[in-house]
């Protein structure tokens, strides 16, 4: 029973693990992208469009190639969400709009865009295509707890963990990460040191958004087995809360995601009424507020948000 609970928690958490990693990368570059919920929606619809195009090209559904059935939607999801991230960047970095307002606008736009275009996507046979997502390792022995907990997920679960670990390594161990964090902390300093602030901001936001978009795709194609649900943006807000919860560390974000996932699905495993369930679903947000308070009381410089988060940079600004 507990193994199944943990299995489902990890599976569910993958959605916002993508979102959290993507948003952490973005925020490390100093962009507070509140458009993540919208970007995850657009990633989902982009992936569905890709899957639909691929399925249409098949003469017979039984000739489906599992590799392509996963890869094509992933590429489409990253393309769509990355493009929306770039739009955000164009507005905030090049045109120097307010980041909060732009982010919220992107979310509203992304959700609307998704809700409209998903009606135009032909989703027949998506349940078949979804099987390519949910099976990765050939062994699926439900009785062995080790196999169940570590080897029985779909490919994107492993992908999420790998991306988070790579992101953590790049941020902490490489010059790329050093430069990116400098841009987020103090763009004027980074600029004077010869770092292209604009390039780093575009790069971080574009890549971060593309990663976040995968979260939306995973939610539809893996977690919901190919059926559609209009609740991806809720996962997006959880992802943003998670960035704070993990104090801007992608590796902690993995554990944070699993904890959030467990808290989110726990009510279904408890014998409680519907209204109590909704109350219990608030726990992740309360935990986030708690973490914010604790990290702010402890006031350790390394655990604070990037210093110039949410601010635009213009080199010739006079102070």
């Amino acid at each position: 029973m507990f193994v199944i609970f943990l299995f489902n928690a990890i599976r569910f958490s993958t959605t916002f693990m993508f979102g959290c990693t993507g948003e952490t990368i973005t925020e490390k570059g100093g962009n507070l992208n509140l458009g993540i919920p919208g970007i995850m929606c657009v990633g989902a619809v982009g992936g569905c469009i890709g899957e639909s195009i691929y399925l249409k090209s098949l003469s017979d559904i039984s000739r489906i190639n599992p590799f392509l059935a996963v890869l094509i939607p992933i590429l489409f999801a990253m393309l769509f969400s990355g493009a929306l991230g770039m739009l955000y960047c164009f507005l905030t970095v090049t045109l120097r709009c307010n980041q909060n307002v732009t982010g919220l606008a992107i979310t509203t736009f992304g959700v609307g865009f998704t809700n409209f275009f998903i009606t135009l996507v032909d989703r027949t046979n998506f349940n078949v295509a979804s099987k390519s997502f949910t099976k990765f390792f050939p062994i699926q022995d439900a009785s062995n707890w080790f196999v169940k907990l570590f080897l029985s997920y779909g490919v994107m679960v492993y992908l999420a963990v790998i991306i988070a670990i790579i992101a953590a390594i790049i941020l902490n161990k490489t010059r790329l990460g050093l430069n990116l964090k400098a841009v987020g902390e103090n763009p004027a300093t980074a600029d004077a040191a010869g770092i292209s602030v604009t390039a780093y901001k575009y790069g971080a936001t574009g890549i971060g958004s593309a990663i976040a978009g995968l979260g939306g795709l995973f939610y539809i194609m893996d977690y919901l087995n190919g059926s559609w649900e209009y609740s991806i943006d809720a996962m997006g807000w959880l992802a943003i809360a998670l960035v704070i919860f993990s104090i801007w560390r992608p590796n902690w974000g993995i554990l944070g995601s699993i904890l959030f996932g467990a808290l989110y699905i726990a009510p279904s495993y408890l014998n409680v009424s519907f209204s109590q369930k909704e109350l219990l679903k608030m726990i992740p947000y309360i935990v986030t507020i708690f973490v914010l308070i604790v990290s702010s009381i402890r006031n350790k410089k390394e655990n604070q948000p990037p210093a110039s988060l949410g601010l635009s940079y213009f080199r010739e600004e006079r102070y």
Binding site: L178, A182, E185, N186, T189, E302, A307
Partner: peptide, 12 residues
């Protein structure tokens, strides 16, 4: 150039 307001990252 060494600027009047130092261009350094505090947490590094």
């Amino acid at each position: 150039m060494i600027h009047q307001h130092f261009k350094l990252i505090d947490v590094y």
